[in-house]
Amino acid sequence: MKKEEDFDSNLSGEEESSDNPVGAANAEAREKWYRRFRKGITTATAEKKETPEGLWSKCPECNYICTTTELKENLFVCPKCNYHHRIGSEEYYEILFDNGEYISLFDNITSRDFLGFTDLKPYQKRLDDIHAKTDLKDSMRVAVGKIDGEEMVIACMDFEFIGGSLGSVMGEKFSRAVDYAIQHKLPYMVISKSGGARMMESAFSLMQLAKTSGKLSQLSDAGLPYISMLTDPTFGGISASFGMLGDLNIAEPGALIGFAGPRVIKETIKKDLPEGFQRSEFLLEHGFLDFIIDRKLLKQRLKHLIVLFRD
């Protein structure tokens, strides 16, 4: 079974920590008989043999191993068990827009540490660190392009960026995306993948729930369709606002979606949660999704829906 994920920790913007002092001590004791004579790496850097990074990919669900190229050709869906790997905005745009062609919108809006928020690290430092590591400007990108010939505005989250957290920038980009859709009379889709609100922006991040809902109200008055696509994972402020407000709410298979995280619920009710709790299939069963769609069928279905809404 898949290891239970504490996705809350993604919101702190830290890398997963694998340090386990107790485990390390046990391992040391077990391997006492087998000690190297000299510590450290003795091979000179010049003689180091290079292996390309990320050549192989292992499915976290069924452990099936395939080449990254094969996985990519399969739209990052496990060829064996249909597990939908987590992907970012770039991959979704590549998959959905014709010939991978699209126009990025509002890319120049970036986060600012207005509050001077410091937890284990200053918020500004966190932002700088991520900007140095990735090309991402923030946790959401907006693009306009053609889905099998039909133009659409798609906002998509990047979980890599502080757990896809909802802050002022996401709220503002979302709002402008709606304005753009209204101005050009285009359908709007949001692909969510987020742990929830960005705590480093405190109440400002909370208010984005109201801000985005207000924009959806205007989109609705303009008679344009809004599709909310939920992917693994979608929690907190997203599901308590635009994530659940789609004219259609749809999801990828097996995605974990909810308001409160499973760990918090378990601690509150002091009981184990049922198998499949908060998965897409569970939400569909309880009436909160219109349908679940395989990544491979998404583009085709979107095109069909756009036509249905319009004609």
């Binding site: 407000l245 909810g258 308001f259 995280g261 918090v264 509150t268 709790f277 009436g287």
Partner: peptide, 26 residues
């Protein structure tokens, strides 16, 4: 906070709050 319970999730805590925010602003 809104109650973080199993039944609350089954009945759509997120959707309920989202709907209220949306309707209140209108």
């Amino acid at each position: 906070g809104a109650f973080p319970g199993q039944e609350a999730e089954e009945r759509g805590q997120g959707e309920a709050i989202a709907r209220n925010i949306y309707e209140m602003i209108r």
